[in-house]
Design a binder for these strands. Structure first.
Lengths: 151, 151
DNA sequence: ATACATGCAAAACATTTGCATAAGA
DNA sequence: TCTTATGCAAATGTTTTGCATGTAT
């Protein structure tokens, strides 16, 4: 279970931090990567690849969708964004809290809200005891209607 | 939050129950549908569409993949199987406990184990209070290494 | 008899890959 | 300079759809 959650940094600090990390891992710092990273760090919602692509193209019209996919894959691997998978194959990404945590998803407007709940670690522990699995990660999603859509 | 969990029936009883339900909803009972349903009810693992397809073809060689997809979609809609979605678009299905419940997934051998945990309803309640969402459903997956794969 | 389900092939998506060219280090 | 990243197009894998034919009711 992932336990080291970096203290909340402002996006600019975090951007620099990640760029240093990438450089140390001998990945190159390209304008496309910086632009995509910036979009993730500044998104309060949880954008899809397609949404990120649309945004990068605004600043950087030549960027290809393949590059967005490759960058997303890279950022996933180095643990700087979290993938939120959906059954219908419309994945979304969380660049602000890249560790597993529960999400609340409005089935009407598709808004995704973050949520931290301590009980999750308790459940994971309980499951390790009863099942014998060594639990490494999780994906927890609650579906419902958000306050705005209830009105 | 779904709360009516039918008492555990043996597969034969449950098959009849579902066939009556489908008939009442004016869906037709075809040999393909019965065969696919049987496979779901007898599977202890959580088969993918492709795996179900392979099994139906053994008994019923003319069955098409499209029919399997359509039947899966139907059974999802009437609430008799549960879809377990994965980020890589390799969905699997639970025909024995078609209500939301946590799964333990071995990332090595891909085995999926069921698990019932009372705390889930508590968490859902807590989230409803703090977020204002009306929670309707959930999807909870824990990833790790199963006992067999740890050796 | 008639509406609905099947099976086939084509289409629709999301994502990945191969490769020539461009550009960080 | 030398290796890695980009961008394009083609390939992949999963799921959906249109339509003629078959079949449950």
């Amino acid at each position: 279970m992932q336990s080291t959650r970096s203290a909340k940094l402002d996006p600019k600090q975090r951007l620099d931090e990640i760029l240093v990390k990438l450089r140390n891992l001998s990945f190159r710092i390209t304008p496309q990567r910086v632009a995509i990273l910036r979009i993730f760090l500044n998104s309060q919602d949880h954008p899809s690849v397609e949404q990120v692509y649309a945004q990068v193209k605004a600043d950087f019209p030549s960027t290809s969708l393949a590059t967005v996919y490759k960058t997303v894959s890279l950022l996933k691997e180095v643990g700087e964004i979290l993938e939120i998978g959906f059954a219908d194959g419309s994945n979304r990404y969380d660049g602000n809290k890249p560790y597993p945590h529960p999400h609340l998803i409005c089935t009407r407007c598709k808004r995704i809200m973050d949520s931290d709940i301590d009980l999750v670690d308790q459940i994971a522990n309980e499951l390790e005891q009863t099942s014998g699995y060594r639990i490494v990660s999780h994906q927890i999603e609650f579906f419902g209607i958000c306050p705005a859509c209830q009105k």
